[in-house]
Design a protein around this nucleic acid. Structure first.
Lengths: 141, 141
DNA sequence: GGCTTATTGAAAGTCATTTTCGGTAACTGC
DNA sequence: GCAGTTACCGAAAATGACTTTCAATAAGCC
């Protein structure tokens, strides 16, 4: 999703496209998947040096509400975000050695979304993360 | 896993079985899957009224390290726990309407654990949660 | 029963995230 | 273009889950 498209999504709901939001979107596009708020803030500051951390939080929240970005939870108490982009449905490979996060696209669970499982539970979406060790960490051991 | 078994796990590592830990384990056994620390604390206090919240945190942490309990992360910034019990491998159905959490046992991803996927990533374990609406919430709508 | 030391409870401290509030700048209507 | 409305911004303070500190206590070992 490019900036103009994102701006359209926002304006359609009475929201505004500001230099700060542009900077955050640009940072997300450059950084790749599942990045922490601090990292996004640091990167976005290249484009908007006075950008405050609070604004990054608010911006990511607003963009997530519009479906422009997606939050990722890995269980360490920090929320990461990634562009909701044209990218395909994917999950994450989380290295327990170095903390690195890479996308993983072989998900066989999409077929569950939209179906009813168990005792009448209608699945809307799912979250899956794979934990293990990346090649580098294994070679290093 | 019963109390004696859990006590054995602890003693084998130089740890001790205290009334507080007994209370926490009992609370977990009574409560079912994926319960918050506050809820566990409240329940355990029935058996040990002076039990402090801090001790519950520490106890759950220690028991998780011994594999007696398992942490569950649902992305709301709170850690839940459940007994690691003889229970089978399962995941969770999280209702977006009422917040209720139920176990879900139809997981086809166990075959991934222990294999190598993508660019040399060795999968150790995985985490999966399904989000949607339970029967009650759907009937209510 | 006495000893060693893991464990406990209360208070204080972290850290990610949210709220508050006075000031600023996008969009709207002219 | 220009003014007005109000969404948005930044900084400081607040929140909430969780952790650390430290003196007192009690498991497990003899």
């Amino acid at each position: 999703m490019d900036l103009e498209q994102a701006a359209g999504y926002l304006r359609a709901r009475g929201r505004r496209m500001t230099v700060q939001r542009r900077a955050v979107l640009q940072a997300l596009a450059e950084l790749g998947c599942a990045r922490g708020v601090g990292e996004i803030h640091a990167r976005a500051r290249r484009l908007a040096p006075r950008l405050g951390l609070v604004t990054v939080y608010r911006t990511l929240d607003a963009l997530a509400a519009e479906g422009v970005v997606r939050p990722v939870f890995l269980g360490d108490g920090r929320t990461r975000y990634e562009s909701a982009e044209a990218e395909r449905h994917h999950h994450h490979l989380v290295c327990l050695g170095c903390g690195r996060v890479d996308p993983f696209e072989g998900c066989s669970l999409q077929r569950l979304d939209g179906t009813v499982v168990g005792k009448g539970f209608a699945v809307a979406t799912h979250r899956l993360e794979l934990f293990g060790y990346c090649r580098d960490c294994r070679e290093r051991a």
